[in-house]
């Protein structure tokens, strides 16, 4: 299991990276942490002509909080770096929790936050977090810059709306409002496995009632699955066993997971429902 030949280019600036990506004649892959790409290359399931390494671009290597108190995570930021960041831990705790579920420490030391988003493995954690937290993804190419809502970014298993010549340069998580709370819940067979099913819940509270809700599932569809009907069921009421039950009953119709060798569709759906209950309750408790 050795990769087929390819050319490797280390970009030292975003401008250089997008210029390299703009070469339409060759199949070009962005190399960030490589923790998903390298297994594919080692197994010769991909044959890119060129890898463009973006981890040597200084401007992509930092985590910054802007004047709006949104956090910008550059494309070269490793998962471990984000996981250890105290600002993320306090301001966006579900992101920290979700990163803690990715593989093992040795994987997170190389893997990047943006790489997980751009790869969009259906069982991976971060795309769901991005959707639940209304993240914005910034894509740049020689043609210009696009700001994409996470809700519009993921368009199928291992697929996003990024064009071939576009580089995802950063992900921006907006400040989480006061009186909001989130929860990350995942079930996997072994520690470190991809999720059998998981959910990210985000609630906002106005007085005693839920004023906004996000329920975004992963591992149960080709992409993060947001279930609007379940969210609706939670609105304008406090979180109670009956509102939670109403939300969960909406999942029955809305979720349509695929079964595989590790879990049947029915089991994934059942897990999703159980995790949603835990997640809703935890998110509500955190709405303080």
């Amino acid at each position: 299991m050795k990769p087929a030949p390819f050319d490797y280019r280390a970009a030292h600036s975003v401008a250089e990276a997008i210029r390299l990506l703009g070469d339409g004649d060759r199949e070009i892959k962005v190399l960030a942490g490589g923790q998903s790409l390298l297994p594919v290359l080692n197994m010769r399931m991909g044959h890119p002509d060129v890898l463009v390494d973006i981890c040597r671009i200084p401007e992509l290597g930092s985590i910054d909080v802007d004047s709006q108190e949104a956090v910008h995570i550059g494309a070269a930021v490793r998962q471990a770096q984000a996981h250890a960041d105290p600002r993320l831990r306090s301001g966006w705790p579900v992101l920290t929790e979700a990163i803690g579920h990715i593989g093992h420490p040795q994987i997170r030391n190389r893997g990047t936050v943006c790489g997980s988003l751009a790869h969009n493995d259906p069982a991976s954690e971060l795309p769901a977090v991005a959707v639940a937290l209304d993240a914005e993804l910034v894509a740049r190419s020689q043609r210009g810059l696009r700001r994409l809502n996470a809700a519009d970014f993921f368009d199928g298993p291992f697929s996003t709306v990024l064009e071939e010549d576009e580089l995802l340069t950063e992900v921006v998580f907006p400040r989480q409002p006061a009186w909001s709370g989130s929860s990350f819940q995942e079930f996997s067979t072994r520690v470190g496995d991809f999720a059998t099913a998981g959910v990210v819940v985000r609630l906002e509270r106005a007085g005693d009632v839920v004023s906004a809700a996000r329920l975004v599932f992963f591992g149960v569809g080709g992409s993060p699955v947001r279930v609007a009907a379940a969210e609706q069921a939670l609105l304008d009421a406090p979180v109670t066993p009956s509102s939670t039950a109403a939300a969960v009953s909406a999942l029955e119709e809305q979720l349509d997971p695929v079964g595989d060798i590790h879990a049947t569709a029915a089991f994934r759906k059942e897990l999703a429902a159980q995790l949603a209950v835990t997640g809703i309750n935890q998110a509500w408790e955190r709405c303080a």
Partner: peptide
Amino acid sequence: EQGSCGACTILVDGVGVRSCLT
């Protein structure tokens, strides 16, 4: 060579890394 077993773990700049996925 798939990043699953950890036998190739080394330190790169002080942190544990899979050398088969690098």
